[in-house]
């Protein structure tokens, strides 16, 4: 008898269940997404170019540790992931060790960014590293190109594509803005107009890729003027993978569960309440 009394549902119990179910459904409902945690610190990405005519085959040291060996003039590495912040970069002739470095510089790199670091210059005017911050984001359906003038003693450079000037009078140690091209086959010429010297290369530039063309070497002397090209895949932007929580365009079965739960329970309670009232009224 006692157990029967205890199991009888009371209005207070029903309300408690209703409140708990509502809370569950609200936590489940859209808009109340998890509080984001702190972002992990991303790496910086650095590629290194050997563009100094006066440095032979070299070793490159990063913070005292050998990062590259047998590094030859005209070489561009892939992007290397390194911790952001300041780093001591040293370039030494192969096998000589960091204490015999011909270039020693501290460079600072920011998290998430890509850089090209070029060893440049000639003994007469000094050897050093120059840093270019990169933007490797792709442009859909287009080839993106950047030109770097790293040929000393040659004056400004002009880059032409299939005979049409693309980048005019770029100063030594400067990189151009990014230029967009239709994907295809191109003959690129660099002209050092003050020296009346030019050099060319042919390339297939592809959609969604980033093409870098480096002018290196000497207008008069050796190693002679040359163009070095590197291509990397461009990076897309992040996708839009969220949906409007206020929209109601999906089928009711899919969309209804979290939103409809409190509504259904409310209607159910109203129905029970209404039925009870009608029943009581009919007994009077």
């Amino acid at each position: 008898m006692r157990s029967c009394m205890c199991r009888r549902p009371k209005m207070g119990t029903l309300l408690q269940v209703f409140v708990i179910l509502c809370l569950i459904s609200l936590v489940w409902a859209p808009g109340l997404r998890a509080t984001p945690k702190a972002a992990a610190s991303p790496a910086a990405f650095v590629r290194i170019m050997h563009a100094s005519p006066d440095i032979g085959v070299a070793d490159v040291f990063l913070d005292g540790q050998r990062a590259l060996s047998n590094f030859q003039f005209g070489t561009v590495t892939d992007y290397l992931a390194i911790p952001p912040g300041p780093h001591k970069v040293q370039v030494a002739l192969i096998g000589k060790g960091p204490d015999a470095a011909v270039i020693s510089q501290t460079l600072s790199v920011e998290p998430g960014f890509a850089y090209t670091v070029a060893a440049i210059g000639v003994q007469a005017t000094g050897l050093s590293l120059v840093v270019f911050k990169e933007d490797n984001s792709l442009v859909t359906g287009k080839a993106k190109l950047r030109f770097y003038h790293l040929s000393p003693e040659g004056g400004p450079a002009t880059l032409t594509a299939n005979g049409n000037p693309l980048i005019k009078n770029l100063q030594y140690l400067q990189a151009s803005d990014y230029t967009l091209l239709a994907p295809g086959h191109y003959t690129f010429d660099v002209d050092l107009t003050q020296q009346h010297v030019s050099q060319q290369t042919t390339l297939e530039v592809a959609a969604n890729q980033i093409t870098s063309i480096f002018s290196i070497g000497l207008a008069l002397g050796t190693p002679k003027l040359e163009l070095v090209a590197r291509q990397v895949a461009g990076t897309p932007g992040l996708p839009d993978t969220g949906s409007d929580p206020a929209a109601s365009t999906t089928p009711p079965v899919q969309v209804g569960v979290p939103l409809a739960l409190p509504l259904i329970l409310t209607l159910l309670l109203l129905l029970i309440g209404g039925s009870t009232a009608i029943l009581l009224r009919s007994r009077r």
Binding site: P111, A114, A233
Partner: peptide, 20 residues
């Protein structure tokens, strides 16, 4: 690791092009 980024400030090189 998990990381949250504003869409225009994400480290795209790390997300799409880390070849290490």
């Amino acid at each position: 690791a998990l990381a949250y980024y504003p869409p225009t400030q994400a480290p795209l090189q790390q997300i799409f092009a880390d070849t290490s």
